[in-house]
Design a protein around this nucleic acid. Sequence first.
DNA 1: ATCTCTGCGATTGTCTACAATCTACAGACG
DNA 2: CGTCTGTAGATTGTAGACAATCGCAGAGAT
Lengths: 229, 229
Amino acid sequence: MKPNLPQIKNLSIREQTLVTLREAILTGELKPGHSLIEMDLSRQLGVSRAPIREALRILNTEGLIETIPYHGTTVRRLTRTDIEEIYSMRSLLETFAVEQVIRARNPDHLRRLRDTVEDMILAGRDNNINTVNILDRDFHDALIEMSGHSLLISMWQTVAMKARQVMALVNRRNTDLTQIARNHLPLLDAMEGGDIPRASELLRAHIASAGDLVAEDWQSDSAAVGDGS
Amino acid sequence: MKPNLPQIKNLSIREQTLVTLREAILTGELKPGHSLIEMDLSRQLGVSRAPIREALRILNTEGLIETIPYHGTTVRRLTRTDIEEIYSMRSLLETFAVEQVIRARNPDHLRRLRDTVEDMILAGRDNNINTVNILDRDFHDALIEMSGHSLLISMWQTVAMKARQVMALVNRRNTDLTQIARNHLPLLDAMEGGDIPRASELLRAHIASAGDLVAEDWQSDSAAVGDGS
DNA sequence: ATCTCTGCGATTGTCTACAATCTACAGACG
DNA sequence: CGTCTGTAGATTGTAGACAATCGCAGAGAT
């Protein structure tokens, strides 16, 4: 009956520019301090400055770039304090979310989370670091989504973006991937048991340890770039 | 010595537009559902569409307006769920802040907060509702600022904006103003005593009661506008 | 030698005109 | 009479040119 044709979506140039630039920043392709000149972007992307400017205003509001009037736009630099703040905020938001999810007592939710963790452990065995990272992100994103709190989700996206950027910039030390994955299991157990205080504490510790690890080998200049051209 | 001349600031048209529109939305002058047509704004403000569009993109990112491509831009409508979410998020962020502030143990902070509350009580005696509201906002803003957590401050601004908008849209029932002001005193006492759990709980209750009051007499359509022209 | 001022290049800010897209309504066709 | 189609008007999306502003280098004065 329904041929199930792929949805045709004609994203505006502004939106395409936004996604492109944001992704480049979050993956570390565009490093902190890199200067973004509208005219250059215009030539590179083959579009006029108008949509680019609008995309830049959005990125600026999201806190990923900084603009000095009549002077230039650069990818925002990250200090160690920024990183600590990002992780403490993550902790706050996720702890809140986990509380909501536990109260909802939805078996589907827990099953979905457990599936994700199991996949993560498997990917860890294969030493597939990329998949582990993606599944880890999925897990935490899912946790927030399940709260059903749209404002929380929106604020989470902002923080999660910044966290992604930080992750891409640090040179990860080789940690035991299966261990990272397994760390999620006690949290799931606590959630299934409906033990909010314990789940909160486990999550807090989980994120704090991740944050400490990142903050530890953060040299402010490690990923910074002088000129950017 | 210092003539204290007013700082000359040549804000860009984009910025002026942004501030103007945002203020109009937050004060309820522009009600949810009201449609913002770029061309009309352009004529009214006597500027071209380009800076207006950039301001609109920012407001959109801030979550105050919604744009449907090739169709129009409207002030975002607020459901009862939105309001509950705004207040629960306020609660979360402020509770976090108060914990930081207590830990910092800075006497100046507590003094400043107490001064604000005292002024608030005085304004309440005079039945000066406007001043009470401003001081109440000052109090909560100050609490967040004192945390020294810049990411928290930034997220707070987003939430506080929305809360301001909601406050402006409900037809406040005449509550005892001095009572509102006095409600802050136990919180201050707990903070001075360094009692984090008690302070958290008081703050949570304080915000929840305010939220309930607002949510109670919220009719989704009360402040909505059909056409907007 | 040092200070001041002027001009230049680079970059963002703004304006105007034109293109693309959506909704609604009127008219053709069965 | 209902359904489809096409056209008009409104609105946003994009382009390209021009204006405003900033930082800096270099000339000239002291």
